[in-house]
Every structure is written in structure tokens, then in C-alpha cells.
Measured scan of single mutants.
Amino acid sequence: MQRVNMIMAESPGLITICLLGYLLSAECTVFLDHENANKILNRPKRYNSGKLEEFVQGNLERECMEEKCSFEEAREVFENTERTTEFWKQYVDGDQCESNPCLNGGSCKDDINSYECWCPFGFEGKNCELDVTCNIKNGRCEQFCKNSADNKVVCSCTEGYRLAENQKSCEPAVPFPCGRVSVSQTSKLTRAETVFPDVDYVNSTEAETILDNITQSTQSFNDFTRVVGGEDAKPGQFPWQVVLNGKVDAFCGGSIVNEKWIVTAAHCVETGVKITVVAGEHNIEETEHTEQKRNVIRIIPHHNYNAAINKYNHDIALLELDEPLVLNSYVTPICIADKEYTNIFLKFGSGYVSGWGRVFHKGRSALVLQYLRVPLVDRATCLRSTKFTIYNNMFCAGFHEGGRDSCQGDSGGPHVTEVEGTSFLTGIISWGEECAMKGKYGIYTKVSRYVNWIKEKTKLT
């Protein structure tokens, strides 16, 4: 034993070699072989497995989906700052455009905790909710729209109204504003409101030439003092309507412009014939205590009207009353817009006519005020429907199939267009061939041609 100890002390290297040989010859039971080890760690190889990531292109799944990435790591994937920024906006807080917040056709661009709407022409605001041009839906104005110097929408209202708090709607500024039905039992019968379409306001006024200088022999019209197929109006439903009495009662109609003036057809009036105007009328054979009678003290036909040349060209006249009318729910003026808007309103496509005229061709006159909704007829169809001249200051309205029309005794009465609950004068009943005849239409004086003249002559002093 002493000898062994001496050998170990003198030859430590020998001992180490012996131990190493023993270990190498022993069977290893701690580690699995290569094949079995792979069965336990069965993990798919990654895209760049075996390579240094710093030297390969980034992978979106590896960089940002398996674990949260930084902007720089995302930049490695896209290799483009702009594309990385677009991805980053949604990656950080989701897609803010998912709810489609942009209105009126706006395009949404996502941002971090926010979004941006790219608005089409005519709109602005956070969600493109603000109209900035009158060309689109009248700028959301209830009545009139004008573009300011910086191309912003400025709404306005006709006389007797003021802008509401929203700067879009119009509200009454006087007790009985024009064009409004205020009798409670008839307010439910107000005709369907007309909503502004998209309009090209630059070209809204037709490029028409008034044929002022045409000389033409007097034409022989049949029954051209021209509501057939209409309905009984309720008291106060058309408070701007008046009836004219002269040699015979209810020979023509008219509309209240203001307390002192009536507008009617020029062919209705004769110099030297006494005319009485009755406002607030409903049943011409009954006294309903809503009527107001006034005498006409002055007749002003349009300066281009000449019955000797043509009885229905420039067929418009103004009547001055001896005493002002007292405005109330049964006696209310009709609204008159400017030339541009009167023309736009007419193009809405349908209007209402009213009167006490004959209820059928050569038949009896109506006792109760009649009204009828009539569609506008395109000019080409209008011209083809008659052998008589249709001037540019006239328009056609009615039904091709016949059966409904204005008729004798309705002449001078109103053709009105309702705009968001307020009625505007767009025409004056003038003439036609018979009444409600198939293929024939009622012919009306186009008020847009005469609004400046009306307003100039009827100013209240």
C-alpha cells in the first residue's frame, strides 16, 4: 500500500490518463441519441435557420407576430419608411378606419389613436360632414345658397324668414311668412316636400332668348283662358290664391305678392273693366268669414305684352289694390325667389296649380277651390304637342294621358313649387288646347323671366 501511494504521488498524470480511459469505455446513459432527441424537440425550422439574422431580410411573422416588435424591426421587413409607417399605425392600436367614419364618399386613412378623412370636392370637416359648395344638395341650405369668396357655403332665406341657429334652416321672422300653410287642420295635408338634388348652379339658368321682337298675326285659340281631375282644397291650404270678379264672377285667378299687390295673367284683364279681388276665398257660393274683398285701382301688364300681336306672350300683369290686405292664416303671400332659384325650383319637376275653373272641358265651374299636382314636361315634348308657338318664356306641365289639367277660369292662378315646406311661385296658368285632352298640356308663363320686374313694381313704400 505504501508503494502504491508513492507511485500516485510521483505520477499524477498517469492516474488522470487511467481515469479518462475508464470513462470513455463506459456506456453513456444520461444523453439520448440524435434521433430520439429530435422526437422530443420537434420544432419547425425557421426561415433563416442556421444563418445569422443580421444578414437576412426581415420576416413579418418572425419579427412582429411571434413577439412584439419595434418600429426598427418592422422597418427591416418593409425596407421602406412609408410602408412601415402605414403598417405601424394599425399594428400599434388597430384600424381606426374600420367603422368607416368618413361621410359623403370620403376616404379614410388610419393613424395612431386617430384617423384622417380625405374629402371629395365640396366637403370638409373631420368626417367630411361639412358642405362647402352650393353645387351639392344646395349646400344643405333649406332655401338659398351662395358661395363666399373663400368658396364656403353661405345660406340665406327669402323675405319674412331668418336663418336658424344651425345656419342652414329657415324659420319665420314674421307672423305670416310667405308660402307657408298655417291653418292647423290643413298642415297635415301639406304636399310632399321637395329635397334639393345635386345641381350645376353655374349652368342652372337656361341660355334662352326671349323672342321679344317676333311679330306674329293673332292666333285663334280655343278655350285658351284655361282644375280638371283635381281635388277639393281645404280652407287655408292655398292662402296665396285669390279669385278675380268682373263682368262675371271667378273669371280668373291670381296670387298675393304682398298686402297691396296681386300677380295674374295679362290676358285676364281689360282696361276700363272694374275688377274686384277676393282673398281668403274657399267656396265661392258661401260666406265663410275668411274672405277679404278689395278693388283694383291700377293694372300693370308687362311692358312687352301686346294682345294685338299675341294674347299669351309675356302673359303676366300686376294688380294694385285700393287697401292693403290683412295677412292671416287664410290670406298669405306666395314666396318669389330670384331668377336663378325660381328656375331651379321649376326644374324640380312638379308643381301645384289651383283655381275655381271648370271641372271638365266646357263644363261647370268649381264651387270649392280645386288643386292638382302636375309634372313638368320637357321642352321637346311640349313643342311636338301643339302647332302653336311655345315661346321661351312659357313652359308645359300636365299629363300625356289627359284627364287632369287646369281649365277655363283658372287662368292667372299660381303654379307653385314647394321647397322644404315653403311654396314659391314658378308659373302662372296661361293657356292650353281644350282641357285635359290626351297628348295636350297646360301652358304656363315662366315666372323666372319676370321676377325682377315683379319685385321692382310691387315694392311697398
Rank of each mutant, 00 (worst) to 15 (best):
R3T: 06
N5Q: 12
E10R: 04
P12N: 10
T16S: 05
T16A: 14
L20K: 01
Y22M: 11
S25M: 14
A26P: 00
E27D: 12
E27H: 08
T29N: 14
V30H: 15
A37I: 06
P44Y: 10
K45I: 11
K51T: 13
L52A: 12
E54K: 08
F55E: 15
V56N: 15
L60H: 09
E67R: 15
K68Y: 08
F71C: 04
E73R: 06
E73I: 05
E76K: 15
E79A: 15
E82Y: 06
K89W: 05
Y91I: 11
D93M: 12
G94R: 12
S99L: 13
L103P: 03
N104P: 02
C108A: 00
K109A: 09
N113A: 10
Y115C: 03
C117W: 00
W118R: 12
F123M: 06
E124K: 04
G125N: 03
G125V: 01
G125D: 02
N127I: 10
E129S: 05
L130F: 09
D131F: 12
E142T: 09
K146H: 05
S148N: 10
K152M: 13
V153G: 14
L163H: 00
E171H: 07
E171P: 03
E171K: 10
A173E: 09
V174G: 06
P175A: 14
G179D: 01
V183G: 08
S184Q: 10
F196D: 14
F196I: 14
D198H: 12
V202N: 12
A207V: 07
D212E: 11
N213R: 07
I214C: 09
F221G: 07
F224C: 06
G229V: 09
P235W: 06
F238T: 04
Q241K: 05
Q241E: 03
N245R: 03
V248H: 08
V248K: 08
F251K: 04
G254P: 00
S255E: 02
V257H: 00
I262F: 02
A265E: 01
H267T: 04
H267V: 02
H267D: 03
H267I: 02
V269I: 14
V273R: 02
V278R: 05
V278L: 06
H282N: 13
E286I: 10
T287M: 14
E288V: 05
N295S: 08
N295V: 03
I297K: 05
P301M: 13
H303R: 08
H303M: 09
Y305I: 02
I309Y: 06
Y312C: 04
Y312N: 07
N313F: 08
D315M: 00
D315Q: 01
D322W: 01
L327N: 02
L327T: 05
I336G: 00
K339W: 09
E340V: 14
E340S: 06
F345Y: 15
F345C: 02
G349D: 13
G349M: 05
V353C: 03
R358H: 15
R358M: 10
R364N: 15
A366H: 09
V374M: 10
D378N: 11
A380D: 13
S385P: 03
G398S: 05
E401W: 14
S406I: 12
P414S: 08
P414F: 14
H415N: 00
E420D: 14
E420I: 09
G421F: 04
T422G: 01
F424G: 01
F424D: 00
L425F: 03
T426N: 00
I429Y: 11
I429V: 13
I429N: 13
I429G: 14
S430A: 11
G432E: 10
G432P: 12
E434T: 15
Y444L: 06
T458I: 05
